[in-house]
């Protein structure tokens, strides 16, 4: 899908913005956290759906963002003051730089973007998690706790995001801005270039497009968005640990995106919210059966609904009246 229909997105965000009026505050707080996962889902949908780059390590960038926020928030980095806002900035910057470095290793013209690329991302995810577990500076397998919440510098003094409703509204604003920005990006010439490279890199190269640069940009953008999600998650959760960048979360993100729809970031975001909400409702009841249900869900969606549940709906809405 090249163009995201605007109306469903606006309706979606309006409905979500009104939710705190009706929902209990614990649900609002939970949804605020799920919006961070939504950022991760959107970044993966952009990379995979638009760029054709299936990544098994997208949570690596989410986790690096979370750790960046934690390190700055706790003042563990030299030369940087302990500042949550600065931490959030680093949560954007560090994953982007990491993606550029890894991208030079991976996204070169010589590595085909098919299965071998996906296996390489799997390896990178495992390396990242092992490094985090082995590093005493990052708190090893215990992670880092006691992170400060995000503080907004308002005219009347800094406003700490502790209560669920303001946190949710700020998160909603950020996520909506990212979603609308991605929709514009997808509809722009840059989006067309990315899809052209996805469809046939060799042909795109013959038309004067540099496939390496296009893929590298997509990889870096997706990493930045995932990192932003990670930083915001750490700010709310107050705690980071190696599972945040591991294979488990990367796999979960794939489930959200596959269930929602890889073709559209909005559909992927809705998939994340849906799966996480169902997990909140049924997870305790199913217990150890939940990961099993998640695996079966992914299997069924891949086999039966390759466009995803919401992706199929959106594609129907976006279809022009006259072909």
């Amino acid at each position: 899908m090249s163009r995201e229909p605007l109306l469903p997105a606006l309706l979606f965000w309006a409905a979500l913005a009104l939710l705190p009026l009706a929902a209990p505050s614990w649900l609002t707080g939970q949804l605020a956290q799920h919006l961070c996962y939504g950022l991760l889902a959107m970044s993966l949908a952009y990379l995979w759906g638009q760029g054709g780059l299936l990544s098994f390590c997208q949570a690596l960038f989410f986790g690096v963002g979370a750790y960046a926020y934690a390190l700055v928030g706790l003042g563990k980095l030299p030369l940087l003051p302990a500042s949550p806002l600065l931490g959030l900035g680093l949560a954007l910057l560090l994953p982007t730089l990491l993606a550029l470095a890894l991208g030079l290793l991976l996204v070169t013209a010589r590595v085909p973007t098919g299965p071998a690329w996906a296996v390489l991302t799997l390896v990178l995810g495992v390396i990242g998690e092992r490094l985090a577990v082995a590093s005493p500076f990052l708190g090893g397998s215990n992670g880092l706790a006691g992170l400060p919440p995000l503080a907004l510098p308002l005219p009347g003094g800094a406003f700490e995001l502790l209560d669920p409703v303001p946190t949710f509204l700020v998160l909603l604003g950020v996520t909506a801005a990212v979603q609308l920005g991605l929709a514009l990006k997808i509809a722009s010439p840059a989006g067309s270039l990315l899809r052209a490279v996805r469809e046939d890199a060799l042909r795109a190269a013959h038309l004067g497009i540099d496939p390496v640069a296009v893929r590298l940009r997509a990889f870096a953008l997706a990493a930045a968005l995932a990192g932003l999600g990670g930083g915001l998650f750490a700010a709310q959760f107050g705690f980071v640990a190696p599972p945040l960048l591991g294979l488990g979360l990367s796999t979960e993100a794939l489930v959200w995106v596959a269930v929602g729809g890889r073709g559209s970031p909005l559909a992927a975001l809705a998939g994340a919210l849906l799966v996480k909400t169902v997990e909140g409702l049924l997870g305790e009841w199913l217990g150890a059966g939940w990961p099993l249900a998640l695996g079966l869900l992914l299997l069924l969606v891949v086999l039966l609904f390759p466009q995803g549940v919401f992706g199929g709906l959106l594609a129907r809405l976006a279809r022009p009246v006259r072909p």
């Binding site: 299936l54 150890a288 998640l294 891949v302």
Partner: peptide, 26 residues
């Protein structure tokens, strides 16, 4: 069923792995 979609095969076998592993846990 996924012959024509190699990337989806990857995803589906990953899902199958999850199912087998969690069945063993259960």
């Amino acid at each position: 069923r996924l012959r024509e979609r190699p990337l989806d095969t990857l995803l589906a076998t990953w899902a199958a792995a999850l199912v087998v592993r969690q069945t063993v846990v259960a």
